[in-house]
C-alpha cells in the first residue's frame, strides 16, 4: 500500500541535506514501527522516494515523499506514528493513502511546479519588490540557464506561474521537476539584476504541484 506524505522542514532542520533527510526518514519509519516494504534483491532497501530535493538552508512547509507499506495502516494512524518520532522542526502535515486500482505515478515524476515564500533581509530590498511590477508588464523575459547539457534559454513568462508581493514577502510559483527545474534564488537574482544569495533571503518552499487538466494541483490532491 502506497502513501503520499506531506511534511514540513523548518528551523534548524533546513541545514540537513537531502541525502541525510532520506537516511533520517529510513530510521524514523522503523522507529514508528511501520511495516515498510523492502525492495527485492541482494541489497534490499525501503521503498521510499522523495519528490524534489530541497537546497541546504531552505525551509519548507510543502515537502513530499512516497512510502510503500506491506499493508494498509490507515492515514491518521500512520501520521500519528510518524509524528511521535519526528525531530524538532520536521512534522508530518498530511498523509494520503493512494488507491491501488492502477499503477500510480510517484511524486517525483508528478512534480511540475513549486511555490516559495521569500523574505528579503537585505538593506536595500525595495528594488527587489519592483520586480513584481516589471514582471507583470513584460511579455517575454528570457533567462539563460546553465543545465547539465549546456546553456538553455528559458522564457520566465511561461515558467514562472505566479509572482506577487504579500506582507513584505515575495510569493513565487515556478517550474520545478525533471522538465525544467528553476531555483527561486536564481530567478529572483536575475529579475532584480543583482546576485541575491541565500544569506540575505529566507526562503520557504510552501507547496509542490503536479499538472492536472492544465491546472496546478498540490501533489497531495493529485490522486483524488
Amino acid at each position: 500500500m502506497k502513501y503520499r506524505i506531506k511534511f514540513s522542514k523548518t528551523g534548524d532542520t533546513c541545514y540537513i541535506g537531502h541525502l541525510d533527510m532520506m537516511r533520517y526518514f529510513q530510521k524514523a519509519v522503523k522507529r514508528a514501527g511501520l511495516d515498510v516494504r523492502y525492495s527485492e534483491g541482494f541489497n534490499p532497501h525501503q521503498l521510499m522516494s522523495f519528490a524534489l530535493p530541497l537546497g541546504i538552508g531552505v525551509e519548507s512547509t510543502g515537502e513530499y515523499m512516497d512510502l510503500t507499506l506491506n499493508a494498509s495502516a490507515g492515514e491518521k494512524e500512520t501520521m500519528d506514528a510518524l509524528n511521535d518520532v519526528m525531530a524538532k522542526g520536521i512534522e508530518i502535515l498530511e498523509i494520503r493513502e493512494l488507491p491501488d486500482d492502477k499503477k500510480r505515478t510517484n511524486s517525483m515524476a508528478l512534480v511540475a511546479a513549486a511555490s516559495y515564500r521569500i523574505g528579503i533581509s537585505d538593506e536595500s530590498s525595495e528594488d527587489v519588490f519592483k520586480i513584481v511590477d516589471s514582471f507583470k508588464n513584460s511579455e517575454r523575459i528570457l533567462m539563460e540557464k546553465e543545465t547539465k547539457k549546456g546553456t538553455k534559454t528559458v522564457d520566465l513568462k511561461e515558467s514562472v506561474y505566479d509572482l506577487t508581493e504579500k506582507n513584505g514577502e515575495l510569493l513565487i510559483t515556478l517550474s520545478a521537476g525533471s522538465v525544467l527545474n528553476l531555483k527561486p534564488e536564481e530567478v529572483i537574482s536575475f529579475l532584480a539584476g543583482r546576485d541575491l544569495n541565500r544569506i540575505n533571503m529566507r526562503i520557504i518552499r510552501t507547496e509542490m504541484f503536479g499538472i492536472l487538466d492544465g491546472q496546478l494541483v498540490p501533489l497531495i490532491d493529485m490522486d483524488k
Binding site: 534548524d12 541546504i56 541565500r198
Partner: peptide
Amino acid sequence: MEVEKPSRYLGNEIN
C-alpha cells in the same frame, strides 16, 4: 553556504 556540513553543529539530533 559559508560552512560545509552545517548539521555538524546543530546539536538537535534524535535522542
